[in-house]
Design a protein around this nucleic acid. Structure first.
Lengths: 258, 258
DNA sequence: GAGTGGTCTAGACCACATC
DNA sequence: ATGTGGTCTAGACCACTCT
């Protein structure tokens, strides 16, 4: 007998394994179309659901994307560099600059949407801004896009009292940059803490970033402090894993000789 | 009518949504058991497969883990800090130190396995070490464990010619640290490039790290260069997303005043 | 042994973008 | 209109681990 269980690994995993091998070997190059569920089912002598499970395994791994109703295709990876240090450095130019320069240099068209809202602090923001959970904070939410496709989310949160009635609360670009503006308001940041978490996206993130299945995200929190250790900014960057390479370059202060 | 399609969202997603809400609200706390597939199917009036699909949705999101044959449970997150700078700083103490100190301070038991092999350079390693793809390089592979559970992979790769016949090729701890050893051999590193990628794990990574579904990983590459810009080390750290918080803390050189 | 999830089948109907 | 995937059903058998 050589039914679906000829070997002891489930049929759908063997289907997935074969396709995976073809993908990583380059036999099935990026953007190539995979066999349809029907074809796979017939070729392997299994039910469509079983063939489909094999396909879904690769989708969850991020190797394959479905384009309804065309079929499944090998995922193409193009990553742009993301430099946390520049994102959070005081010297950084106004809000869009790093992003705009990098993207337009590549001949692609950058844009962003901004909206500002008064929101109740979620636990993660509350603890970083040292306010009560549920307290009102200002959320300046931006989505950056390339050629109309969202590539990352950048939500800055500030304690209400320090940005009230300032341009930060207006949903428009701040030419000098919000960090410089905060400094001008008497809250210069002298220190920042960067944290990165890696997880699967929430349904809301999937929606805002138009993520396909099998795309994890990096959450990059930047909390900026003034000289007296007061947090005045907590920025949450959401970076789809398939689009970003997080890079930092360091020179060692002490050399490795003794 | 109120069949499985009473609303236009699929039944399995509505089931997932309800459970998700209970989890994020804390109604179903970490480690709590979810209803069995049977119970869900009956309660919602759907087939078991449909209820199961709802459950799997949450598993893929990383909110829920299955413990066969007990059932599904709300995932408990415990993250340890991972500091890229310390991992790649020359001043870092010998191989296990940072890790050992941090973990044993928490009353848990750290350990590691080491194996060393001559392997053909994969494309990612080859390009970073500036060798031909497929050329032989030395891979010093370590898995770090806490209480016997693997928590991260740390694979260092070196060009064969510079580490041949040195203690680096022995699968034992190097008390002074491999970076110091490289320096002693005449290859002090003065600069490093850090790259972080976020993806779903490969089957091999799932196996080595004993990952459950819905766990993305961060790949942290550190490439170390000597003063004449020769790469002498390429380390690949694989960090399960559910176990790690990547942190770095910075003080701004230039203050934000003008 | 009981009960959990893991896999599988052979059908079915539907939504949807491209043709 | 066609063909793709997306969802769903009502059964079935199996593997595993807890008790």
């Amino acid at each position: 007998m050589d039914g679906p269980r000829a070997s002891n690994t489930p049929a759908y995993l063997r289907i997935a394994a074969e396709l995976r091998a073809q993908i990583v070997s380059g036999d099935l190059p990026p953007d190539a179309q995979l066999p349809t569920e029907h074809e796979l089912a017939e070729r392997w002598g299994v039910a469509r659901q079983t063939a489909r499970n094999g396909l879904m395994e690769l989708v969850r791994e991020g190797l394959v994307v479905g384009r309804r109703p065309l079929g499944h295709f090998v995922r193409k990876r193009e990553q742009m560099d993301y430099r946390p240090q520049e994102e959070s450095r005081p010297a950084a130019r106004p809000e869009m600059d790093t992003f705009v320069n990098q993207v337009s240099a590549e001949g692609r068209e950058p844009s962003q949407t901004i909206d500002v809202a008064l929101v109740k602090a979620t636990p993660d923001i509350a603890s970083r801004l040292q306010v009560e959970e549920g307290a009102l904070v200002v959320a300046r939410r931006r989505v950056r896009l390339i050629n109309g496709q969202p590539v990352n989310i950048n939500d800055s949160h500030h304690p209400l009292d320090i940005v009230k009635d300032t341009p930060i609360m207006s949903p428009a670009d701040v030419p000098i940059g919000t960090n410089q503006l905060l400094a001008d308001l008497g809250y210069p940041q002298v220190r920042a803490v960067d944290e990165i978490f890696v997880r699967m996206p929430t349904p809301e993130q999937i929606h805002r970033l138009d993520l396909s299945r099998g795309t994890p995200v990096a959450l990059h929190y930047v909390t900026g402090y003034t000289a007296d250790d007061r947090p005045v900014r907590c920025t949450v960057n959401v970076l789809p894993g398939d689009l970003h390479r997080i890079v930092f370059d360091r020179t060692f202060e002490r050399k490795w000789t003794r």
